[in-house]
């Protein structure tokens, strides 16, 4: 579980891997991120990131959104050009599509403008229409059906957690299915790791909640290496000791112990350590000269970088102190 896997060595990706090798050189270094986090102003933070291609056209929050949208669209264009297997492109874009669908649904229910990200497969105008109160029919299948079903469920329960959970369940089910279809052990293993980390976060959230019975009903995703049924029982009964004992016998013992034991900001630390574990897994593709794995690893690392840049620059815009930003970046509490 989450160890080294056999890489495919498929020569069909050799040209794309050549491109990835150059692009990897342009990924942000931790030092640049720390410099941005410790900068005095938002403009100074942007200066620290400029060398890696982060240059907003306009100042302030609008410039930041435009910058991230540009980077995201460029990344998607690169992947579209480089991936011979269309299912892999779909797999990589799926997170963005479901995140956009979730944002549109939440925007519709809270009557706020949704933060949609460019670069996915779903048309942004249709998502905006959905957020403005339109029907999900304009979206392609299976998003239209999912949107309709979730809106019906919302009318019954009016629970935002259930809505988000519904989107996540659909996303992970489709990711799992696609990873199986594509048949890359690297992808299947990464998918398992992602599902496990999502389930561990759900377990920590349930154990900390005052109403774990309600929360745990739809909290756990099938398909990972952890037993979702067992996690459900532990969460429902609020059995923190049992949870420590069970997770302690899995490869996530060190990663999740503090969070399950109820440490302050346990969920934040779990998120940072989970991201580290994912990056550690992706690193095994860093030196592979053949196969789709380096491309997948680059895409996921770049998406992670975009999230980190959004986090750091949004914090700078809102005047968050540098030590708080760096503490959150590296999981130091």
């Amino acid at each position: 579980m989450t160890g080294r896997v056999k890489l495919s060595g498929d020569p069909a990706y050799t040209y794309a891997v050549g491109r990835v090798r150059v692009r990897e050189r342009r990924l942000l270094t931790p030092r640049a991120l720390v410099e941005a986090a410790e900068a005095r102003t938002f403009e100074d933070a942007v200066d620290a990131l400029r060398e890696a291609g982060y240059e907003p056209a306009t100042r302030g929050g609008a410039g930041l959104e435009e910058l991230l949208a540009r980077q995201s669209a460029e990344l998607t264009r690169f992947i579209r050009e480089s991936v011979p297997d269309i299912r892999l492109l779909e797999y990589l874009r799926l997170r963005l599509d479901y995140a956009n669908l979730k944002a549109a649904l939440v925007g519709r229910l809270t009557e706020k403008k949704p933060p949609l990200t460019d670069g996915g497969g779903l048309p942004l105008d249709k998502l905006t229409a959905l957020a403005d109160g339109g029907e999900p029919d304009g979206l392609p299948s299976p998003f239209a059906e999912l949107g309709k079903r979730l809106l019906e469920e919302w009318e019954k329960a009016r629970d935002p957690f259930l809505l988000q959970q519904g989107v996540d369940r659909a996303l992970f089910a489709r990711l799992d299915e696609l990873a199986g279809e594509i048949g890359l052990p690297f992808l299947a293993e990464y998918q398992r790791l992602e599902t496990d980390l999502a389930n561990l976060a759900a377990l920590v959230r349930c154990l900390a909640a005052p109403n774990p019975e309600e929360l745990s009903a739809a909290a756990f995703l099938p398909g990972g290496g952890l037993d979702a049924g067992r996690l459900g029982i532990l969460a429902r009964t609020g059995d923190r000791g049992g949870a420590v004992d069970y997770v302690g016998r899995t490869p996530y013992a060190e990663l999740a112990r503090a969070a399950i034991e109820g440490a302050t900001d346990g969920l934040g630390v779990l998120a940072v350590r989970g991201a580290d574990r994912k990056l550690e897994f992706l690193r095994q593709a860093r030196h592979a000269p053949f196969g789709a794995e380096p491309l997948i690893a680059y895409y996921l690392a770049k998406r992670n970088e975009l999230e980190l840049v959004r986090f750091v620059l949004t914090c700078k815009l809102n005047g968050v102190p540098p030590e708080t930003i760096t503490a959150r970046l590296w999981g130091v509490s």
């Binding site: 020569p11 050799t14 040209y15 794309a16 891997v17 050549g18 491109r19 990835v20 090798r21 150059v22 692009r23 000269p289 053949f290």
Partner: peptide, 14 residues
């Protein structure tokens, strides 16, 4: 063929 494809990929970026 292998090395040429990789070189073409690198050249397209740098």
């Amino acid at each position: 063929g292998y090395a040429g494809q990789a070189t073409a990929g690198v050249m397209s970026e740098d």
